Structure formats: C-alpha cells, structure tokens
Simulated scan of single mutants.
Amino acid sequence: MTPDQFQALIAKVTGEIAGRPVDAQLADFLNERFPANGADFQAIFAACKDAVAAGWMCEREHGGIKFGRVIKPTDALHGFSVDVVEMADVVGPQHAHPNGEIDMIMPLEGDAKFDGHGAGWFVYGPGSVHKPTVMGGRAYVLYLLPQGAIEFTRP
C-alpha cells in the first residue's frame, strides 16, 4: 500500500460526500453506502493496517496515541484532509471542529468504541468540540476534516 493508492481509496468516499452537509444524516449515508462489513470499508481498513506496518501511517506518538496527518487537504479529495490515529483505552486531547469531522471507526481488539460508537461512521458537525476517547479495546480512527480544519482547545 502506497500513499497514492491509499488516497485513491479515500477518494471513493470523498467523491460521494463532497458538498453534503457534515451532520448526522451524513453518518447515516456513510453507514449505508460504506458499511463496516462492506468491501470499500474493509479495503480502507486493510490499507491502514498495511500502512501502519510499513511505517508511514500513525508514525508519531504522544500520550499513548499514535497519530499522523496522512493527506493534507487536497482537491483530489474534495478539500478533505485525512488523519489516522491508533488509540487503546485512552482519552485524547480536546479539540474543536470548525467545519465538522467525519470519523471512520475501525476496532482492532476487544469491543473498542470511539466516543461510544463501534465499527462504522460517526460525524461531528461544524463547531463541535470533544475529547476523542477509545474504550473497550484498541482501534484505528480515520478522520476526514473539511479543509483540514481542527483547533486544539483547553478543557
């Protein structure tokens, strides 16, 4: 798996969601169009595993969280950036989503849930704030951020 191949996989998703409001209905659409047990979701999940093993994804670590921006906002992904984190029974740093955040949750071990949600898609709308939390195991979480916008805040 190369970064270019990974971007091509993600472009399938961003092509389907470009221009849609970043809201709960988007999560419903993604869970229907790209279900956790579906071929596209599983291909992205496998690509994340391969990329982490190859050392170009989740290459940094802080506070027990492996992370990294995989793709900066680009027209090829309709203005979305892509970040991937690996978390296990940990609470991450509080941050805000000026334009929203689209999360692809990929449990690796146990009954891992991201902010209470299992395998699949979850969406935070524009202006939302949270402390990303994985409990019950270990998971990858892929974040699509419109225009790459994220603001780390103090609780």
Rank of each mutant, 00 (worst) to 15 (best):
K66Y: 12
A24Q: 13
A11I: 06
F67S: 12
F34G: 08
I105N: 14
L142I: 12
V91A: 01
A43S: 11
Q5E: 15
E101Q: 03
K72S: 12
C48G: 03
A53K: 00
D4G: 11
I17T: 09
G68I: 07
V13P: 12
P146R: 03
R138F: 07
A54I: 01
G79K: 13
T14C: 13
T153L: 14
V141Q: 11
G19A: 08
R69E: 13
L9Q: 10
F67C: 03
P3Y: 00
T153E: 11
E151V: 07
W121K: 10
P155F: 07
A53T: 07
I105Q: 04
S81P: 10
Q42K: 13
G92D: 08
T2R: 09
H130W: 03
P3L: 01
I65C: 09
A8K: 10
P155D: 10
E101L: 00
C58H: 07
E61S: 14
A43I: 11
V70L: 14
P146G: 01
R20M: 15
V85S: 14
G15P: 15
D115M: 12
W121L: 04
P3A: 00
F114P: 06
W121A: 11
Q5F: 11
P73C: 11
G116C: 05
I150H: 03
K131D: 11
A119D: 00
S128P: 09
C58G: 12
D89N: 14
F152R: 04
Q7V: 08
D75P: 10
T14M: 11
S81C: 00
R33H: 13
G19C: 06
I65V: 15
G55T: 06
N31A: 02
G63N: 08
E151P: 09
P155S: 10
M135Q: 13
S128K: 09
V82Y: 07
N37K: 11
D40M: 15
V70C: 12
G110Q: 01
E16Y: 15
G55Y: 04
A51Q: 06
M1T: 14
G116W: 05
G118T: 07
I65T: 08
F29M: 07
L145Y: 00
E109I: 07
P93D: 09
V85K: 13
D83I: 09
A36I: 00
M57W: 04
M1F: 05
V22N: 05
Y140H: 08
G148D: 10
L9D: 03
G120D: 00
I10R: 04
R154T: 14
V123S: 01
L142N: 05
C58K: 10
T133F: 02
M57C: 14
A139I: 05
M106L: 12
V84T: 06
R20I: 08
D83F: 12
Q147T: 08
F80T: 05
G15C: 11
A96V: 09
V85Q: 12
A96N: 05
P98A: 09
Q147P: 01
Q94A: 12
V82W: 05
V123K: 12
D89H: 08
R20E: 11
E151T: 06
S128I: 08
G120Q: 05
T133S: 01
G55Q: 03
G79P: 14
F6C: 09
G118Y: 04
